[in-house]
Amino acid sequence: MSSTPVPPDGDAAADGSTTDPVAEPVTIQGHWDFGYTYFAGASASRFFNELRLNQRIMGTHCPTCDRVLVPARGFCDACYVEIDEWREVGTEGTLDSFTILTTSFPGLPEPPTVVGYVTLDGASTALLNAVHGIDLHDFDEAGALLLTQPRVRVVFSDKCEGRITDFAFELVAADA
């Protein structure tokens, strides 16, 4: 390959770098850190404000396809119409899908944790959030339990700040 540098075989300088200008690959350190202010928009703002102020989970109803979309949004992408009919949905639902995050990556939550899509009662769609309180000693055992698509409930944080992390799910059966 013409672009692969020849292995350095020249003399090493005192600082350990080679003195061969042809062979020594140069790298520079860079950063990729750009600040943004994301506008949630009217629908998501109301969804978050309802979480923070009233501990309620709200969806919007599309009159064309008759779905209650949760979390709430201002248009239905399937029917391509604006929507603004608000519905409160239940705080219990079904865990439709999940994964157990088992490996640590910089910038992501410390494992092991469970995230899953839950369809709350009265909603037509599922929403993603953390699932707390699962015994994760044995991943395969925990997985087998969660594969039964158990019922879960919403648990709000002590201090809601208007973010999706204001709530998580836990198994309904856990304290049954």
Binding site: A40, A44, S97, L101, V115, N129, I164
Partner: peptide
């Protein structure tokens, strides 16, 4: 707005389908 805070990545996105 709704999902990034949950720590989702392409790996977990795939695993959510696998289960």
């Amino acid at each position: 707005i709704y999902e990034r805070d949950t720590g989702l990545s392409t790996i977990s996105m795939g695993a959510l389908r696998a289960t």
